[in-house]
């Protein structure tokens, strides 16, 4: 564990708390892509299936439990509790275009052709692009509530912070994980446009609005 990874994980935790807070205080999941949230459940379940056979640490254990539980809870909030506030007509990204390639890529590019190893690889590839339905929705509506942009910023910061973590691990532990690194770079890259608007508008006190 190093500081970058810890800050990344805390940022990830914060993003989830921000999202739950947004849904509960506004009593609405307006502006949140159900598809992206469903993809995150898929990602966490596929990756953290190793809770059953791999012990890393108490920290790792509780974080995994938290990520699975909170992502399922968010789906519940969206699907049942605040269902009327979700508008499927603007959440129309075709998730099969993400899940399909992630399955194929994980079957080709993996460290070992084993079921749980392929599930791990699949979860890494899928996570890299899971934010796309959300960003697509943002693009479509052209605006977002400020709290939603804080959620996205914290989520983007999480993967961005993993990059210095990998550089640090390369020099201190001689560990290189090419699959995680390539996917992580792609994932962080997807946030660049968003970050630009977030820093130049939201953090200057303006509303998040995309140019028409």
């Amino acid at each position: 564990m190093n500081l970058f990874r810890l800050l990344g994980d805390l940022s990830h935790l914060a993003s989830i708390f921000i999202l739950i807070h947004k849904i509960q205080t506004t009593r609405s999941c307006r502006g949140i892509s159900f598809q992206t949230q469903a993809l995150y459940v898929t990602v966490f379940v596929a990756r953290y299936i190793d809770l059953f056979f791999r012990w890393i640490s108490l920290y790792n254990f509780f974080m995994k439990i938290f990520f699975i539980a909170s992502s399922v809870y968010i789906l519940y909030l969206m699907k049942y509790r605040y269902r009327p506030t979700h508008d499927p007509s603007i959440d129309t990204f075709k998730v099969e275009y993400l899940v399909g390639p992630a399955v194929v890529l994980s079957l080709i590019f993996n460290y070992k052709f084993e079921f749980t190893e392929i599930l791990w690889t699949f979860s890494i590839y899928l996570e890299a692009v899971a934010i796309l339905p959300q960003l697509f929705m943002l693009q479509r509506t052209g605006e977002a509530e400020t709290i939603t942009t804080h959620y996205l910023a914290a989520l983007g910061a999480y993967r961005a912070l993993y990059i210095p973590n990998w550089i640090y691990r390369y020099f201190t532990e001689d560990v290189v994980d090419p699959i995680a690194i390539v996917a992580g770079l792609v994932q962080t890259g997807l946030y660049l446009d968003f970050f630009y608007v977030y820093f130049t508008k939201v953090l200057q006190g303006q509303k998040f609005e995309l140019p028409a």
């Binding site: 190793d50 790792n60 974080m63 070992k112 993993y162 973590n165 699959i179």
Partner: peptide
């Protein structure tokens, strides 16, 4: 398993 990455990240 020496040649497989440890997967110790979240």
């Amino acid at each position: 398993d020496g040649n497989v990455i440890a997967h110790d990240e979240l």
